[in-house]
Every structure is written in C-alpha cells, then in structure tokens.
C-alpha cells in the first residue's frame, strides 16, 4: 500500500480537483486516478514529514469554529477600517508567542488560519526558540491574542495531528 500510494491525502485531493474541473464520469474517474497516482509520487522529492491523523472527529468542529471566527474578525476589521480605527484610538503591534508544537503540518495549518483571519498576520517563525512573531491589527490586550492562538487553535491542531 505504502509503495503504490505514498501520499494518499495528496492523491485524493488531486483526484477530487480533477473530477470537479472535468465532471463526475467514470472515464474521468479512471483518468483522474491515473494522474493522481503518478503526480502524487513527485511529492516524495520534497521529503515531506508524514502526516498522522489522531482525532479525526475534531476536524469538523475546528472548521466550524474557524468559519465563525473568520466571519467575526472580518466584521471587526471592516468596522475598524470604516470608522477610522475608533477615530484614531486603534493601536496595532507585534506580539511574540511561544508555541509548543514542532509539527510542520500543524505549523503550516496554523499559518493558514492566522493569515486567513483578518486582524492577524504571520511575520516570522523562529524554529530554534519556537517563537512565532505575529502582527495584530487591533491590539487591545496582548494576553487575549496569545490565549486565542495557543488555547483555541494550537490545542485543536495538536489534538488532531500529534
């Protein structure tokens, strides 16, 4: 199994994208599977770390939390832009957060979450010290943001991936 299909998630993803773009027919399914099988092997050249999923049932929960969180921060940032940052009182700044995870997949997903959420921007990651540098658009309380990243997202990602 491992020899034929070294990267099952990638192959499945490629097959789904192929089917969505061309149409759900048996012929396209066979063609898409062949392309996915061959193309996903090229991933080995990048030497990725293997992904192991632990608590799969947490994924939909995290997705739901994310859609709501992103919608809320969209609304917050939109309001701050329109009212001129509470009429000049908004303060932005950089914060550093020490993370516990060293899992590369978890870090990549955390980067997507942080960037997809308006209001937080990922600026740097120090792998030696395990410190993440974030820029926060509306920095009212630094502890709130650390709490959000560490206890809400990092914890969920670690439960799923470690």
């Amino acid at each position: 199994m491992k020899r034929i299909l070294p990267h099952p998630f990638l192959a499945l993803l490629l097959l789904i994208v192929w089917l969505v773009l061309t149409g759900f027919t048996p012929g396209q399914f066979i063609l898409g599977s062949a392309v996915a099988l061959v193309a996903s092997r090229s991933m080995s050249a990048l030497e990725p770390t293997p992904i192991t999923l632990r608590k799969v049932h947490r994924i939909p929960v995290l997705l739901g939390v994310l859609i709501v969180d992103i919608a809320r921060s969209n609304f917050d940032v939109a309001r701050l832009i329109l009212n001129g940052g509470r009429h000049g009182k908004r303060r932005s700044g950089m914060i550093e957060i020490e993370l516990e995870t060293r899992n590369r997949t978890a870090l990549a997903l955390l980067a997507i979450i942080v960037t997809a959420t308006p209001g937080t921007a990922w600026l740097g990651w120090n792998p030696r010290r395990g410190v993440l540098l974030l820029h926060v658009f509306d920095l009212v309380d630094e502890a709130d943001w650390k709490d959000l990243i560490k206890n809400r997202y990092e914890k969920a990602l670690r439960e799923i991936l470690e």
Binding site: N74, A78, S92, T115, A121, F137
Partner: peptide, 16 residues
C-alpha cells in the same frame, strides 16, 4: 503603516 495594510486584503481573500 505597511504592517496595518497587510491586514486589509485578507478581507477580500477570506469572506469576500
């Protein structure tokens, strides 16, 4: 500032 502006396009790329 540039770092503030870095947040602005994410409105268009997330729910936009």
């Amino acid at each position: 500032s540039f770092y503030d502006r870095l947040h602005a396009p994410t409105l268009g790329t997330s729910w936009g």
